[in-house]
Structure formats: structure tokens, C-alpha cells
């Protein structure tokens, strides 16, 4: 199963590193990253594979939410199927 992580917020050094470190810690494999900075605003979407997570996916979502709060970023971690269902026939 794949999940999508979106990160938005004020651009600072090390956002990708911190999000990636959290993925690594949970054993989530990063499949794809797109990232841009618009006028100081950081926007990233990341596709990860979560089949071999060391922790429950729900706990991983909590960890990403905690990271978001700590770093003043808005992080959403969602099962990929919600996007597939809505946008693909």
C-alpha cells in the first residue's frame, strides 16, 4: 500500500531531511517526491510505500502530525486510495 504525504509551510533549511528521517525511522520507502518553493512557501508531495512499516500506519500519521506541529508545517499523511478514488475512473 502507498500513502501520500503533503507538506506546506514557510520554507526553511532541512524540511525534506526531517520528513525523510521520519519515513526512514518508520521504514517507509520513498517512491517519489515533487517539491517547489513559491515566494518563500514550501510545497512538497511525497509518495511512500508503507507495506513494511515498523509501526502501525495510524501511529505513523500521528508522528507526521507531531513533526508538522513542531516545525510549524502543515503535513497531511493519507492513504493513496483516497486520491485514486476521487480522481481516477
Amino acid at each position: 500500500m502507498n500513502a501520500v504525504i503533503t507538506v506546506t509551510g514557510k520554507d526553511t533549511v532541512g524540511i525534506i531531511a526531517k520528513v525523510s528521517a521520519e519515513c526512514f525511522a518508520a521504514n517507509a520507502n520513498i517512491l517519489d517526491i515533487t517539491q517547489k518553493v513559491f515566494g518563500g512557501m514550501f510545497v512538497m508531495t511525497m509518495l511512500i510505500q508503507v507495506d513494511d512499516l515498523k509501526i502501525r500506519f495510524a501511529d505513523f500519521v500521528d508522528k507526521m502530525n507531531e513533526l508538522g506541529q513542531k516545525e510549524h508545517l502543515v503535513i497531511h499523511t493519507m492513504h493513496e486510495d483516497i486520491f485514486n478514488a476521487m480522481h481516477n475512473i
Partner: peptide
């Protein structure tokens, strides 16, 4: 294949 706009559209629908 998902693109960023679709992903952000869904998240906007939910959050906004």
C-alpha cells in the same frame, strides 16, 4: 498517475 494539483485539490476540499 496522481499529480500534485489533484492531491492538493482533495486536501483543500477536506481542510477548507
Amino acid at each position: 498517475m496522481l499529480n500534485d494539483n489533484k492531491i492538493l485539490e482533495t486536501i483543500n476540499m477536506i481542510t477548507q
